[in-house]
Design a protein around this nucleic acid. Structure first.
Length: 489
RNA sequence: CGGGGUGUAGCGCAGUCCGGUUAGCGUACACGUCUGGGGGGCGUGUGGUCGGAGGUUCGAAUCCUCUCACCCCGACCA
């Protein structure tokens, strides 16, 4: 087990990388840009997945699975969509290997595919090709489907969890009879993402609309949730798209309405990915390691006995087991660390690295006094706590930690959010990092100019942005409301 | 795709400039022992195609040529 993590202040990117590797969340693999998600990291992802999945089901969605491979011709059917993804697609051209004359394995040139297959970067096309057959009448609508899958986008530059060539995600694809209904769906899923981010991940997000430049390829409107990381950079944590009738027209998906007239259906798609893992890490963790919100932590309470001589082992182990049982009975996820080969100090550091919210240490002295030492990961505080009612105390404390982690993150964001009205201040605040609320004249040209000059982009036009007359911070032209600028991941 | 960096034990590194016994150090691992309230001490031990190929040489981790891989930074993106 490696010891040191690079401090955040010294090198934030290195800190992130150290943390992911040393906390055992993920590892590099033999394939460039592709990561191995290790058991502990996957346990966190599973908890995210299960929570989201339950919310999707509760709102009437069903899971299904569509192929990994997409015929190349499908891509060309929606022009904007092709443009958006063409540059990062992996393509399957052959289906067989053979042993060459030099004894080496090589691609069999005889086994060339008639039509090449694209490894899905997203599944709109293959799914809408099926929807054409599934939808005939308004009675078939709405069609509410989600899939959990892997996708591949051949990125130039990758970072563990934040951007990898292959990643895991869910993608919802729905079809509706009216534009209004599809828009309601788009907004509903955005709300679910925001709710998940705030209540499960303890990470405040801004709900907003993307500008035309930042919009999903093929969407009419892209909604998003944006979060602020500790280094002052923004991170898009989830997107929900209103696709209009773009894919219905591209794949000729029509339905008969109640009057017997044929209409194109209206579509949405929405997704979050393993990128959320990166967001979770960068929202809360510190120089000692991960800090996990209790509802997502695979282990919520870890119990460490402090042995003193071999005689103490059975008695302390038993006392710890009782605490573990008490916690389990209350539905807490608890781990009893009775490994004899590691010393307490090592265990403390180890569980802190992994972000376990509560640590209970119990030695002979505590046993005599009817106490335990209880440590909070988020604040790194230790308090002597009475043994009586310890399970319930932990349960309540976990709720408190969840709440306080959110409040802390919110306070950080508030402190790092600046309203600016002059160009000088705008540039200066963007340089410092954080979110900048400023007026924008609404043109792509200005957006591009700002990006080139400052490297910051418009993260979103917040849904709750009040109407406020002003002038564009860059051009001085009139503006109706403020938008969120930031440097982003 | 440009710029930079790194490949030597599971991990982190030294040695390379200036070629020379059996390639070291830390950590991890195994065993023993003393231990145990913040990443333990002592002892013993296991573990290496020095990224790969070719060349120079009496002799290559070290020099030369080619090559592969990965990481970081930038442009593109979730």
């Amino acid at each position: 087990m490696a010891k040191e993590i690079t401090p955040r202040q010294q090198d934030y990117a290195q800190w992130y990388q150290d943390l992911v590797l040393r906390a055992g969340l993920a590892d590099y693999s033999a394939v460039r840009g592709c990561m191995v998600i290790k058991p502990y990291g996957f346990a966190i992802w599973e908890r995210m997945r299960d929570a989201l999945d339950a919310m999707f089901k509760a709102t009437g969605h069903q899971n299904a699975y569509f192929p990994l491979f997409i015929p190349k011709s499908f891509f060309s059917k929606e022009a904007a969509h092709v443009d958006g993804f063409a540059k990062e697609c992996a393509v399957v051209t052959h289906y067989r290997l053979r042993t060459g004359s030099d004894g080496q394995i090589e691609v069999d040139p005889q086994a060339k595919l008639e039509e090449e297959l694209i490894v899905r970067p997203t599944s709109e096309t293959i799914i809408w090709n099926s929807y054409r057959d599934w939808i005939q009448s308004y009675r078939d609508l709405p069609l509410l489907i989600n899939q959990w899958a892997n996708v591949v986008r051949w990125e130039m530059r990758t970072r563990l969890f934040l951007r990898t060539t292959e990643f895991l995600w869910q993608e919802g694809h729905t079809a509706h009879a009216t534009a209004d209904e599809a828009l309601v769906e788009t907004r509903q899923m955005l709300d679910i993402y925001a709710h998940f981010a705030e209540k499960w991940m303890a990470m405040p997000v801004i709900k907003g609309i993307k500008t035309e430049q930042e919009r999903f390829a093929g969407a009419v409107e892209t909604f998003c949730i944006e979060a602020l990381m500790q280094d002052g950079k923004a991170l898009q944590a989830g997107t929900s798209h209103f696709l209009g009738q773009n894919f219905a027209k591209a794949f000729d998906v029509q339905f008969a309405n109640a009057q017997g007239e044929r209409e194109y259906v209206w579509a949405t798609s929405w997704g979050v990915s393993t990128r959320l893992m990166g967001a979770l890490i960068m929202a809360h963790s510190d120089d000692e390691g991960l800090v996990l919100p209790p509802v997502l932590a695979p282990v919520q309470v870890v119990i460490v006995p402090i042995y003193k001589g071999s005689d103490s082992i059975p008695v302390l182990t038993e006392a710890c087991q009782q605490i573990a049982e008490e916690c389990k009975a209350l539905g807490l996820r608890v781990e009893l660390d009775t490994e004899d080969h590691a010393r307490p100090g090592w265990k403390f550091a180890h569980h802190e690295l992994r972000g376990v919210p509560i640590r209970i240490a119990l030695g002979l002295r505590d046993l005599q006094n009817g106490e335990v030492e209880l440590a909070r990961r988020d604040l790194r505080t230790k308090t002597q706590t009475t043994r009586d009612g310890l399970g319930l105390h932990c349960k309540n404390l976990l709720d408190e930690i969840q709440e306080e982690m959110y409040n802390k993150a919110l306070a950080f964001r508030t402190a790092q959010t600046h309203r600016v009205d002059t160009k000088e201040e705008f540039v200066q605040k963007l340089e410092q990092g954080g979110l900048v609320l400023a007026h924008w004249d609404g043109t792509g040209a200005t957006e591009t100019a700002i990006k080139e000059a400052t490297k910051a982009t418009i993260r979103c036009i917040p849904l709750d942005a009040p109407d406020e007359e002003g002038t564009c911070v860059w051009t001085g032209k009139p503006s109706a409301r403020r938008v969120v600028f930031a440097k982003a991941y």
